[in-house]
């Protein structure tokens, strides 16, 4: 299964992911119309600043997700095949158990409506809107295998370059 991975060193803090996420979860799916929609479209990805570093945070869709476990109404559920954790708007009562248990703090709410809002990994899109919007390649949509392979290749290239320059010196 593909997941959203984050390459921390690349984030510029532009919040394009947040903006694209809100627009993708609007009724019109167009920025210029979305700004007038009520209830206001809500982002599901958050760029935080910690220890001098910009950190995009998005639902990890954890295995055995705690937010699903604590949900009293069955609004929060995990697809057994894709592993995607999603929330049923009709069943959510806004008790915020999920928000309290989520270790990443990525469960938000509508400004005007008392229901939980979280990443659904953009069911209608091949690539989630946040990943598509990221101008620096901070967000990567890949399987875990693909992602670590990419990381390994980058690390290998770094090591190889280091070795070459040592050999020259």
């Amino acid at each position: 299964m593909k997941e959203v991975f984050v390459r921390l060193d690349r984030c510029m803090g532009c919040k394009s992911c947040e903006m694209a996420c809100a627009v993708e979860h609007s009724v019109s799916k167009s920025l210029f119309n979305a700004v007038c929609e009520r209830p206001s479209p809500v982002r599901r990805v958050y760029v935080e600043m910690a220890e001098g570093q910009k950190v995009p945070l998005v639902c990890r869709h954890c295995e055995d997700a705690p937010c699903v476990a604590v949900c009293r109404t069955g609004a929060m559920s995990q697809d057994p095949i894709t592993g995607i954790v999603d929330r049923d708007e009709e069943r959510c009562v806004g008790c915020w158990m999920c928000a309290m248990i989520c270790p990443y703090g990525v469960i938000g709410r509508h400004k005007e409506v008392r229901i939980a809002v979280k990443c659904d990994r953009c069911r209608d899109l091949d690539v989630p809107a946040c990943v598509r919007a990221c101008p620096t390649g901070t967000l990567i949509y890949a399987t875990q295998g693909e992602f670590v392979e990419m990381m390994r290749r980058e690390a290998a290239a770094k090591i190889a370059r280091g070795a070459k320059s040592l050999a020259k010196a």
Partner: peptide, 9 residues
């Protein structure tokens, strides 16, 4: 693409 939404607005 996509161009910066803050800039667009």
């Amino acid at each position: 693409q996509p161009q910066c939404g803050f800039g667009e607005l």
